[in-house]
């Protein structure tokens, strides 16, 4: 049965379904148990699964991330909640040096089936230390997968796949979307990691985006439609593996491409997508790929500055107009 639930509830359903299904799955992180989750994602899970499987950790990201990795090496399937991916930076060594490399360094003897999840991107006037977009930093590392759902339906299906995956998966959520409502089936289901989806079909320009900015891209597409530019919006859903085929198929049809990526532009997911589109669609492009990112500055506190920094609807519209000027 399909009902309308919040993004956070969809995440919880994926975790709870997995924990009912497989005793090796457990959840740990700051305030996930007694407090019911700093953002109420894990609300009620302590009650259902008990303190041995829903584990409050101290504020000790490097420690508990590493501990969970050790547990995964031995065959458990941990879900590690970072209250914010901004806080994962102090756990960089375990999450980048241990988890994604264990299988390789051990010559295939030990896997690391683990999910790291939490809020990524600007939360709303949190200032620069709490507004990290880690996708471009972390996607650079071989051995991990990365998903970035933009709506409750995808959140449940992608996280469910992530927990079943035998590799480390980074799940990037957004504080600004946790209350977003959407239709989600009650029963468990999986959305394959590495498959993008066309959110809005169009003929004139492909907009590729990931996570929260997909909503800005959809708004921009409506504005641009009124101007006679019919955009096709692709929701990447996964960053690693990147669904190059779906993106390339769209660009071969529209001949124009704008990438919208909420991380900073230098060495970014956006620059990777642009490079791949240029490689795969070189003869199909009528202009170079245009990119919309966070401005290359630390996230500011002031509301107006923060809104200006983000890859907002206005900037996407401007990029599409600039890209398709010769159409």
């Amino acid at each position: 049965m399909v009902r309308e639930i919040e993004f956070r509830d969809a995440l919880r359903e994926a975790m709870s379904d997995a924990m009912r299904d497989d005793k090796r799955v457990f959840l740990c992180g700051e305030e996930v148990a007694q407090y019911n989750g700093a953002y109420k994602v894990s609300r009620g899970m302590l009650e259902e699964f008990g303190p041995r499987r829903v584990i409050d950790t101290p504020i000790s990201e490097s420690g508990f991330a590493g501990m969970a990795i050790g547990a995964a090496m031995l065959g458990l399937r941990p879900i590690v909640e970072f209250m914010s991916w901004s806080f994962s930076l102090v756990a960089a060594d375990p999450i980048l040096n241990n988890a994604p490399k264990m299988l390789y360094m051990s010559g295939g003897q030990l896997g690391c089936p683990i999910v790291f999840r939490g809020n990524d991107g600007a939360g709303g006037q949190l200032g620069s230390t709490h507004s990290w977009c880690v996708e471009s930093l972390y996607a650079n590392v071989p051995g991990l997968k990365m998903i970035i759902p933009s709506n409750p339906y995808d959140a449940k299906g992608l996280l469910s796949s992530a927990i079943k995956d035998d590799n480390p998966v980074f799940c990037l959520e957004s504080e600004r979307m946790l209350a977003l409502k959407g239709d989600v089936p009650e029963e468990a289901y999986d959305i394959p990691i590495g498959k993008a989806v066309v959110r809005r079909p169009g003929t004139d320009c492909t907009i590729v985006s990931f996570g929260r900015p997909v909503h800005f891209a959809m708004e921009a597409a409506e504005t641009l439609a009124a101007e006679g530019i019919d955009c096709e919006v692709i929701d990447g859903r996964s960053i690693k593996p990147l669904d190059r085929e779906t993106i390339a198929a769209s660009v071969r049809k529209t001949n124009y491409c704008v990438v919208v990526d909420q991380s900073w532009s230098f060495s970014s997911v956006g620059s990777e997508v642009a490079a791949e589109v240029h490689r795969l669609c070189f003869d199909d492009l009528d202009n170079h790929v245009h990119r919309v990112h966070n401005d290359d500055v630390p996230a500011p506190y002031a509301w107006n500055l923060e809104q200006e920094m983000l890859p907002n609807t206005r900037k996407i519209c401007e990029a599409v107009r600039a890209c398709t000027y010769n159409a």
């Binding site: 501990m67 990795i69 050790g70 547990a71 995964a72 090496m73």
Partner: peptide, 11 residues
């Protein structure tokens, strides 16, 4: 060292 704690957690 956190991995060692994790091995113990897992067993």
């Amino acid at each position: 060292t956190p991995l060692g704690a994790g091995l113990a957690f897992a067993t």
